Simulated assay, not measured.
Amino acid sequence: MQKKKVALLYGGKSVEHDISIRSAKNIFEAADKEKYQIYCIGISTNGGWYLTNEVSNDITKGLKLSLQLHNGQMSFSTSEEENLIFDVAFPALHGTDGEDGNIQGLLEVTGTAYAGSDVMGSSIAMNKFFTKQILEKQGIPVCDYLYFTYQDDPEFEFIKDKLGLPFIIKPINLGSSVGVSKVKSKSEFKTALKEAFKYDNEIIAEEFVEARELECSVLVENNEIKASVPGEIVVEKEYEFYTFQAKYVDSKAARLEIPASLPENIENTIKHLSINAFKAVGCQGFARVDVFYQEDQGMCYVNEINTIPGFTNSSMFPMMWKHDGYTFTSLIDTIISEAIYRFERKTRLKTNFNSGLE
C-alpha cells in the first residue's frame, strides 16, 4: 500500500507558537509511519514556511519553502526538490492564522484535503463572541457576557452592574488563557484591559462562575459524531483560574481527572451539550468543548470550543480518548482518515454550471 503524504503544519505567527510545536512533536511521533509519510512544515514567528526533518523548535534551520500551484493543487518547492505535493494536511496550529479559518481558506482554494474544521467552523469557534451568540440561539447555556472593541471605552461600573464581581476579561480570538485576567476590583480593571487589548482588538467581559471546570472531546468517525468521557481540571488554590502558567509551565498547578467523577445524568448532559455545540458552530473532524458545571445548581455552561485542541503531554483531548480506547496512533489515524473521506465526498460536487450565456 502506498503511503499517504501528510503535511504536518506547526508553529505559526501566533502567541501559541510554542504550544503548537509541542503538539506537533507528539503527532509526528504517534503517526503510523507504515501508513503515512510525514512532512514537517514549520511556520516561523515571522511567517516563513520551512521543511524540517522533524518537528523542530528552530524552524528557520529547515529548507525554505516556496508555495505554488501545480495542476491546480498546492505544491511546494525547495532548493533541493520541486513540486512537493501532499495528499492531506494536518494543521497542528493553535490560535491566530491556524485555528481561525485563515490556513483552512488557503487549503480550500488550493484543493488540499485537511484535518479538522473548515473555514466557517474554525472562524466561528475561534471568535468567542460569535460562538456564544450562536450557542444562545440554539438554546445551549453560556455564561453572561459583554462585548467590546478597542475603540470602545469599557467602564468598570457598567460591567460590574451587569456581571457582578469578579468577572473575566479575555481576548476574543486567542486560546491557552493568553491575555486572560480575573478582575476582582476597580484597581485591577485597567491592567486587565491593557493585557487583553495587547493581543486583540476585540474582547469580552464574562461572568465568573464558581464551578467545576470540565472538558469533553468530540470526534467524527465513519460519519458518526462521538463524545468522549468528560475530564476535569482541578486547579491548585494558589491559581485563581486555569492560567497559561498552570496549563503549560507549572506541572503541579493542576490535576487532571479522567474520567471526571460525575453523576450519570450530568455526564450525559455534558456529552449531549458538547455534540450540540460542535454541530451548532459547524465544526468538523474533531474538537474539544470546555464546560463549567455548577454543582449546587445542577447547571452546565458551554464555555469555549477548541477546533485544534492541544496534543501535548498535558492535553486533555488525547487523554480522554485514551480512556475510551483510542491509542494516540489510532486517534491520529482516525482524524486523518476522516479528513481524506470528507475531501473525497466534497469532490463529487460540481463547481461549474452550463448557463448558456455568451
Rank of each mutant, 00 (worst) to 15 (best):
I168S: 00
V289R: 03
N201Q: 14
T191N: 10
K247Y: 11
E221G: 09
L174D: 02
I270R: 05
E257S: 11
E264D: 01
K252I: 07
A254D: 06
V220L: 09
S185F: 07
C216D: 00
A196N: 00
Y248F: 14
K182G: 06
E257G: 02
E207I: 13
F286P: 05
H272L: 14
E264Y: 01
A205H: 11
V218A: 01
F278T: 02
K182T: 01
I203M: 06
V289E: 09
V229F: 06
F241I: 06
V229R: 06
P171G: 09
E202C: 11
H272M: 15
A205S: 12
I225F: 07
V218T: 04
V281M: 08
Y242C: 04
K237D: 15
R212T: 02
R255N: 12
S181K: 13
E238R: 15
K182H: 11
F278N: 04
A260M: 12
E215K: 11
L273M: 08
E224V: 14
S185I: 08
A227F: 13
G179Y: 04
Y242A: 03
S274H: 10
T191Y: 06
A211E: 02
V178E: 04
V235G: 05
C283Q: 11
D290Y: 13
K247H: 08
L256D: 00
I225V: 15
S251R: 14
L174R: 04
I258M: 06
A280I: 07
A280F: 09
I169F: 06
E210C: 12
A192V: 00
K252G: 10
K184G: 10
P263N: 00
K184Y: 13
P171R: 12
R212P: 02
K198R: 15
I233M: 15
N201C: 02
E236T: 12
K184S: 14
G175K: 14
N173T: 01
S228T: 05
K170N: 01
V235F: 13
V234I: 15
Y242N: 06
E267S: 02
I168K: 02
S251W: 07
F189G: 00
I168P: 01
A205V: 03
L174W: 10
P230V: 10
F292V: 05
V218M: 02
I225M: 10
Y199N: 14
D250Q: 13
K186I: 03
F278P: 05
N265K: 11
I168G: 00
N222V: 03
V249M: 14
A192L: 00
G285H: 04
F208K: 10
F241A: 04
K182P: 05
Y239T: 01
A287R: 08
F292Q: 06
K190Q: 07
V178R: 05
I225G: 04
A227K: 09
E236I: 04
S177K: 11
V234E: 12
R212D: 03
A287I: 04
N265Y: 05
K237P: 05
C216L: 09
F292G: 01
E206R: 12
I275L: 12
K247V: 08
